[in-house]
Design a protein around this nucleic acid. Structure first.
Lengths: 254, 254
DNA sequence: CGCGACGTTGAGTTCGGTCAATCAGCGTGG
DNA sequence: CCACGCTGATTGACCGAACTCAACGTCGCG
C-alpha cells in the first residue's frame, strides 16, 4: 500500500505542478487503486482498437505511443516518462487509438477507469486537473508536428533533447546537463521521423559541435544554450516550472 | 439572439456527435453568451502568449493553428472548420501557445471563459463533453505527426483530403465526393510540411491518377476508395458517425 | 564463443526543396 | 474599356538533405 502511494507520487506531482489541488484532493489521487505491472522492452501493452477499462501511469522506464503506416513504418507520436499517464484520455475515450509500447523495461501502474471517474466526479478540481494535463500532452504533440514538419534533422534532434531534459527536470551539474534517457537510435529515429542511420550521423555532428551527446543510455548536454539555439527550443509550451501561486484552479478556490 | 443560437448549433452538434447530453445541457450550450466577429483572410485573431479570457467557435470559414520556426517557416498544426472550437483548451489553459489565423474570410464567435466554466461547473456531463472534444483534436494531431513524419507527399495530401472530407461530412453524389475547402496550395503546404511547388505537383499527380482534384476552392474526389488507399486513411480516429446509443457519458445517466 | 542488438561507416540514389520565370484570374482606378 | 498590380497556380532546371542498401564493428550475454 505504501509502495503504491509512492508510485503514484510522481503522477500527483505532475498534476500539482500545473493545477492547484487541496489536501483532500491530493489524498484522493494517492489513494487510487492500482495494479503494478512490468513490461519488457518492445512489448506492446495497449493494442490498437482495444477497449480498455483502465489507464496507465508510468512509474519507471519509457513508454512510446506509436502510429503506423501501412508499409510498416513506425512513428512515435509521444514519449512518456515516469509520472506521465500516457492514456489518461482513455477515461473519456476508452477505445485505444494508438499502440503503447515500452521502449525499455518499464513499470506501469494500471488504474481502473472507474476509480478515475469516481474521483473526478467527487472533486471537480481533479477533473479539471486531468483535462489540463491532457492539454499539456496535446501542446507537446503540436510542437512535434512543427518539429517533424518544418525542421531539419539537427534541429529536430536538438529540440527533442531539450524537451526531454526539461521534462526530466534535469538540472545542470558542473556546467553540463545530464540525464538518463535509455532509448536506442532507432527509437529516436521513429520519434523524429528520420532513419536510424541519419540519427546516428546527426548525433555525431551534435557531438562534434560540442553541443550534446547520447551514449550509454544517457544524454549529456555540454552546451545548453547552444543546443536551445540550434533546436529553436522555447520551453513555454511545456508549462514546467509554474510558480505555485500561478497554478490553475477554475472551480471554487482551494 | 436567435441568430446566435443558430451559430452555436454546429458546435453543439459536434459535441453531441460523441457525447450524450440531455435537453437541459444542450439548452445551456445554445444559451452561451457570445460575440460574433469577422476575421479577414490571413489575419491572426489569437496571438502567441496572449492571455485570453474567451474561447472561439468557428461559424464559417477555416481557421489554422500555426506553429513557427525561428526561420519564419510556418507549420499549420491544425485546421478548424465550422463547429470547431479551436482553443477550447484555453478554458483550462488561458495562455495561448499558438497563433490562430483565418485562412479565408471567417466568422467566429467569442465565448467568455467564464460562461464555459459556469456551464461546465453546473453540468459535469458538459465538462466531460468538452474534455472529450479536446481529445478528438488531440487524436487528429497525433495522426498529423504520423502524416508529416512518415508519409511521402502523395500519401500526406491524400490523407489530409480524406480527413477533411470526413470532417465536413461530405457525402458522395453521383459517385463523387465533393466539398468546399477554400484553402490555397501554399496553405496546404504549411499543413503538410511541404512546399507549395511540391503540393502543386502532387495535386496534379493525384488528378492524373483520377483520384481527386482541388480547384476553385473545392475538393472533388473522383475515387474515394482509391484515395483512401493511397492516403492510408483509416477514419476511426476521427470518431465521426458514432451511433447515438454509443455516445459517451460517464457521469450519471442522461 | 557465438549470437543478437545496437552503433558506425561508405557509396549511390531520390524525393522534395530552391530559385526563378510565366501564366491566369480578378478587382481597381484612370 | 483597358492597363495595372496583386495573388495564386504552374512549370523548368538544378540542388541537396535525407534515404537505401549493405557491410562492418562492438558490446553484453547465455
Amino acid at each position: 500500500m505504501l509502495q503504491k502511494r509512492r508510485d503514484l507520487q510522481p503522477f500527483l506531482d505532475r498534476l500539482t505542478s500545473r493545477s492547484r489541488l487541496n489536501e483532500q484532493e491530493q489524498e484522493a489521487i494517492l489513494a487510487l487503486p492500482s495494479h503494478a505491472a512490468q513490461v519488457q522492452t518492445n512489448r506492446d501493452f495497449v493494442r490498437l482498437d482495444q477497449a480498455v477499462d483502465h489507464a496507465c501511469i508510468v512509474v519507471d522506464g519509457i513508454v512510446g505511443r506509436f502510429g503506423q503506416t501501412c508499409e510498416g513504418a513506425r512513428q512515435i507520436t509521444a514519449l512518456h516518462i515516469p509520472g506521465d499517464a500516457p492514456d489518461l484520455h482513455s477515461v473519456v475515450q476508452p477505445k485505444a487509438r494508438s499502440v503503447l509500447q515500452a521502449l525499455t523495461t518499464t513499470t506501469i501502474l494500471r488504474v481502473p477507469h472507474g476509480a478515475f471517474r469516481a474521483v473526478a466526479a467527487r472533486y471537480p478540481a481533479v477533473a479539471e486537473a486531468f483535462w489540463r494535463d491532457c492539454m499539456v500532452d496535446a501542446a507537446i504533440l503540436s510542437q512535434w508536428v512543427v518539429n517533424v514538419g518544418r525542421r531539419d534533422a539537427k534541429t529536430r534532434i536538438a529540440h527533442l533533447l531539450c524537451e526531454m531534459a526539461m521534462r526530466y527536470r534535469a538540472r545542470p551539474e558542473g556546467g553540463e546537463v545530464t540525464f538518463d534517457f535509455p532509448v536506442t537510435q532507432a527509437q529516436l529515429a521513429d520519434a523524429t521521423g528520420l532513419t536510424s542511420v541519419h540519427v546516428n550521423r546527426t548525433l555525431m555532428s551534435l557531438r562534434h559541435d560540442g553541443l550534446a551527446e547520447v551514449c550509454q543510455r544517457r544524454v549529456r548536454i555540454m552546451d545548453w544554450d547552444g543546443l536551445v539555439k540550434v533546436g529553436e527550443f522555447d520551453a513555454d509550451y511545456l508549462q514546467a516550472d509554474i510558480p505555485s501561486d500561478e497554478r490553475m484552479r477554475i472551480v471554487e478556490a482551494a
